[in-house]
Structure formats: C-alpha cells, structure tokens
Design a binder for these strands. Structure first.
Lengths: 348, 348
DNA sequence: GACGTGTACTTAATCGCTTAACTGAGCGGA
DNA sequence: TCCGCTCAGTTAAGCGATTAAGTACACGTC
C-alpha cells in the first residue's frame, strides 16, 4: 500500500501559475492577492483536495494544533466511570471545531504524567494541556508553568496556583442535598468521598461539613475511598456494619453509589426505607439500577467544551480568567426517601 | 507566560563544536561519528533536555509518530460503556512504549468519521488508524484504502476486505453460554444484540443460532438494539411483557444487561429464579449490581495493546497478518441459574 | 610517492509552509 | 516629467530535523 502523494502548495502554485507565496496568502485569507487570483487558487486547492501539512505548519508557525489530556486513574476505573469519557467527548467536540487535535494519554502515576508533559513540551507535540483532578499543592502546576506550557485546570477549585481554572461550584448542590436529606429526617449522613488529596474532594467536603452544621445534622462523617467500585463496596460494608449505622450516604461518584446500593441489597438494608443513597455524578448508570439513584448531575460534556475553549484561548496567548461551570443540578429519584422509622442502636 | 525556547540540534552542535549533521548521526545511533564525539553529543543533549521536534521530524521523515482512533457512538453510551475506555487504555499504553501518540476523536456518524480520515490523511496528522465496529460492507475500508492510510480493523470478524484485522473468536464463548443455559433448563433464550449492521454482531448472532440448534434450544430469538441503556430497557420490557416470555437473556454488552436487570426487578421478574441474564462484556459493573451478572469477559486492554502493535507494524510498512485475541472467558455469577419451575403462558 | 580505502566529519538540499522584504506596474498629483 | 503611493505579486529566509554527497586526513600498500 503506497501512500498517495498529497498535493502541496507547490502543486497549487504550478497549476495556478503563481508563486507559493501567493498561494499561501490566498489560502490564509491574507491581503496580497487579487480577488480573481484568490478565487482561482482556492478553486484549485479544493479540487486537488489540499489540506495544510500540520508538520510544516507547526514548524513554521511554532504551533501544532493539538492539545494534550492525561488521565491518571487505573484503567479499570476509567472504563467504568462515565465522567471521563463524557468529559473527553465534550473537550473533543469543541476542539474539532477549530481543527485542533486531542492527544490522549492514560498514566499510572503523577510522575509519569509530569514526564509526559516534559516530553510533549520538548517534542512540541502539543500547544497546551488540560490538567484534571487537581491536588492540594499540585506539583503539576509548577511543572507546566516551568515548561511554559499553556494549561488549564479542569474541575479544580478556584485559584489553581496561577493557572486559569474551570471550576464547578459544588457548594450549592451539596447544601441542597444535605438540606433535602435533613428534611427527610436523616440525622446520620456519611459522605463517601474520593481521595483526600484531590482539591475538589476537599472543597466538597468543606461544603458538606458547612451544610451539615447549618441544618443541624447530628453525625456528618466523611470517609475517603479511591473512586473505584471496590472502594465503594468496602466503605459501604463497613459503614452499614457499624453499630450506629448512617441512614444516608452521599457518594462522590456514580460508580461507588451503585456499588453501595449492591452492598445494601446484599446486607438486607432496604433502600430507601432504611438507607438513602445519593450519587454525585449523574449518568445513565444511575437511571438503570433499581431503585434509580438520586443524583447530583452536571453537564459534563459542556464542562469539557468550556475547558476546550479556555485552553484554545490560552494557547492563542490571550489571558484566560477562571470560569465556573453551570451549577450542578440535584435530581431526586427512588434511592432517597423519608426515614421509615427511628432506629436505635442495632436491630435484630 | 512565555514559552521557553527549547534546545534544537543547532544548540547542541554549537555546544559540542560540531555540525548539525554530526549531531543528528550521533543522536540517531548511526555511523559517522567517533565514539568519544558521540558520547559528548549525547551528554550535551541529555543535559539540555533535548527531544526531537515532532514537526521537524515529521517533515523530513514523512512520519508523524501518531495514530488515530475514532469512535462513533453517542457520548452518552461512550461514557458509560466500559469497553471503549479499556480498549483505549490498552492501545495507548502500548503506543506509549514507542513514543507514538494517540489522536482520539468522537464522531456522530460514519460520514464525519470518513471525512476525518481524509482530513487526517491530507494534513498528515496520523500515520495510521484503527477502525472499530466494522460494519458489513464497511465503506471506511475502501475509504482508508484509497487514501493509502495504513489501518487495522479492531474486533471485526476475519477478512476485513484487505485490511489486517484483530478479531476475537466469540464463537466458542457463545457456544459455552448457550450450552450452559440449556443445561440449566432454559428453552427460550433471546439474544439482545447490538445493531445488525455491525459485522461482529452478525458473527455472534451466527454463533448463537448455531449453538441454539446444536443444543436444541426451542426458541432462540435475536433482537437488535443500539447498545444504549435505553435500548436495553425498551427491548427487555417488550420481551418480558410477551405472552411466552424468554427465560434467559443474553445481552451484547454489560450496560444493556444492567438495564435489563433493572427492568426485570421493576416488573417483578426474579433473577435468576424466573430469568437468567448474561452480559457479554464483563466489567466492574457486572460485579457491582445484585445479583452480580454472569458475563463473558475478555481482556479488552490486551485487545487494545495487540491492536496497537499491529498498527505500528503496518505503519512501519511490514505486512500484518490477521490475528485473534485470546478467547473470551465465561464467568458464571448470580444472575444465571436453573429455571425455578416450568412456566406456562402467563401467570397471575 | 602515488593510489586506494576508511573514518570522521562538513555541506547543503530537502520536507511544506509562512512571511518579511523586495519588485514592478499603474496611477494620481505637482 | 518625476515622485510617491498602492496593489499584486515574487523572492528567499527560516522553522528543525534527516541524509546524500562531498572533503580532509590518516593509514596501508605496491
């Protein structure tokens, strides 16, 4: 299979009887060629099926028209957690509008991630990157800053150490969830959170604690897991086996919530009669299980599109301000309900 | 944020007091420089943190070191179906070994997909592509062949119209599933398949029909859906509402199986007492719901890694033979069991 | 001492495109 | 008639690599 020789501006120039410079001006909509000549060149280019060579353009313009996205979660989780794919879809769809490519990489740890940024920067593979899952004092921020690699923090809380940030205001939604659960009679609520080192985990936790205080929730505990189904299973089993078990669980992602639901079923804890379950990211998954999961949903794809727009701006050298994604929406479904009866310590 | 000027071979040449040609020979391990000079050049390059500019290399070598992957399923499905992310993780991890980048794109339809291949080819963005979800008489095959774009068909059945193909032999697993269900006493089995136009759907369906005949399954029906949760829900609802409802359902992906499980629960059909459920792709999801889903699992990430190796070979210009992925493994869990009692037409 | 043969380089063309600088024609005004 | 200006191009350098072809020197050989 011999790869066909694709037309270059030289071919167009020859066909049009002008210089390559003129062709370049015409194709890029710059002044310097007359209207008829421009039209002729454009027609020839279209007919030949010409498209600019990214390599050549990258070399002379210094920009490659690609941005990078690295996810570092185990493949297991990645596959099953809707959030990432939806985010990527969103990012990708927006990038496609400007012909920007998306380089995607899965890493195992943050060191490899940083090494990849270095390599990408050194090889000039990408014009900028999107950082996910910002950690408290995240080393990646200084790494990309040092490299001079334009970057946007996606989903972190505000003020990402000098980098522009797309944050989602989870505070209001968290407040709504806690208020709702409290109104249903719940007094022992546990938040099954993601890893403590993630900045957005911390910010949601803070909102949770504040809301619990505001609405007079007696016990408002937080346990940390790793976002995996197993993590959710283990945590839930432990929580439900406790003497004073919680009556409501607020999970940090849909996957863990589904896992929790399974554990409750397995332990004979009725949902929602004995236990209310709330999932943070809403997704098809939440609607498929029974009872359907009450969830806090946000438009993840839109989140991704915004992030894409921000990084495009940043790459273009324009200042980008922090931006908030539309507030998350609380969607009550069958997994939450009024507490059936007041329960004492343990029942037989 | 001024992007740091990254070192080029000119910088290295100056520092080493040699020409850029010598530097190039040294860095690429070619003869033409003495051992001491080579060592000196390598040391300087390492110290400067030099990495070859992909753009420059692409321009002079004609290869960009990137391969493309397009998925055309709605974002909704993508997010929630573990298969894709796991596949991509696998592909990506293998590509990373050779420093090859992965361009990832989500499309809405096959026309856009083909247009993207054209653009990628014209812009020389990728050296090759992986084709997913081969259709019967797939137009993409001729499209990439015409473009002279190296491509590998992932997961199609053998003989993908001239393109090398990585196929998974689903026949044996399907036979095992049907035999197992038949042994449990099931006589009315329905396969809830993906879209009929996918080649792998057709091949699995053929295996299903053959196995049903071999083991004397009375009713072996096939219904087609779109792989979405909603598709699974609707199909299942219709099937379970029928006068002679099936006693076992074999779903083409985990998502639909979970959806089916939900519908059964909602309609008061006990799983596995009244209905056995089998999912095709095994994933965390299958283990999280209750009862856990009996599933046919394969190592999707390994599938991806193989695909990556194949496309790298193809890009290098070597002939690539069709290859089979290790056979799928059948994992019985709680969602399948012996038929509780022989049921007549409809019961109250 | 002339000649061939390696070795260790250098030189310069090349990939495809952008763009600053230059050229030459046409035109208006003094 | 000459000057300056604008327009519509052309020319050529540059982006950062690779690589064929050339060069200079050392060495061995007859």
């Amino acid at each position: 299979m011999v790869r066909a020789r694709r037309p270059t501006i030289v071919d167009i120039a020859k066909a049009a009887g002008v210089s390559t410079g003129a062709v370049s001006y015409a194709l890029n909509g710059r002044p310097g060629v007359s209207a008829p000549t421009r039209a002729r060149i454009l027609a020839i280019a279209a007919e030949m099926g010409w498209a600019p060579s990214t390599a050549a353009r990258a070399l002379s313009e210094g920009r490659v028209g690609a941005i990078g996205l690295i996810v570092d979660r185990p493949a297991q989780v990645l596959g099953v957690e809707p959030f990432f794919m939806q985010l990527i879809s969103g990012v990708q769809s927006e990038l496609a509008l400007s012909g920007t490519a998306l380089l995607f990489q899965v890493c195992e740890d943050i060191e490899t991630e940083i090494a990849t940024y270095r390599r990408w920067s050194a090889e000039r593979r990408v014009d900028g990157v999107l950082l996910l899952d910002l950690r408290v004092d995240d080393v990646r921020v200084s790494a990309v800053t040092e490299l001079g690699l334009p970057a946007i923090v996606v989903g972190g809380p505000e003020g990402a150490g000098g980098l522009a940030c797309l944050y989602s205001d989870d505070g209001a939604a968290m407040r709504e969830v806690v208020q709702y659960l409290r109104a249903l009679g719940h007094r022992r609520i546990v938040r099954v959170a993601g890893p403590a080192e993630f900045a957005h985990t911390a910010s949601r936790s803070a909102a949770f604690v504040a809301a619990a205080e505001e609405f007079g929730v007696e016990t408002a505990e937080i346990v940390h897991t790793d976002y995996t189904g197993e993590g959710g299973t283990t945590a839930t089993r432990r929580l439900l086996a406790a003497r004073e078990r919680p009556t409501a669980l607020v999970y940090d992602n849909d996957l863990m919530a589904v896992a929790g639901l399974g554990v409750a079923q397995e332990m004979g804890v009725a949902v929602p009669a004995d236990l209310s379950v709330v999932a943070w990211d809403d997704s098809v998954l939440c609607r498929l299980v029974r009872p359907a999961l009450t969830a806090v949903g946000r438009d993840v794809a839109e989140h991704g599109r915004r992030a894409a727009r921000m990084i495009i701006e940043a790459v273009a050298g324009r200042r980008v301000a922090d931006q908030a994604t539309p507030a998350a929406e609380f969607v009550p479904r069958g997994s939450t309900g009024p507490l059936a009866r007041t329960r004492g310590v343990t029942e037989g």
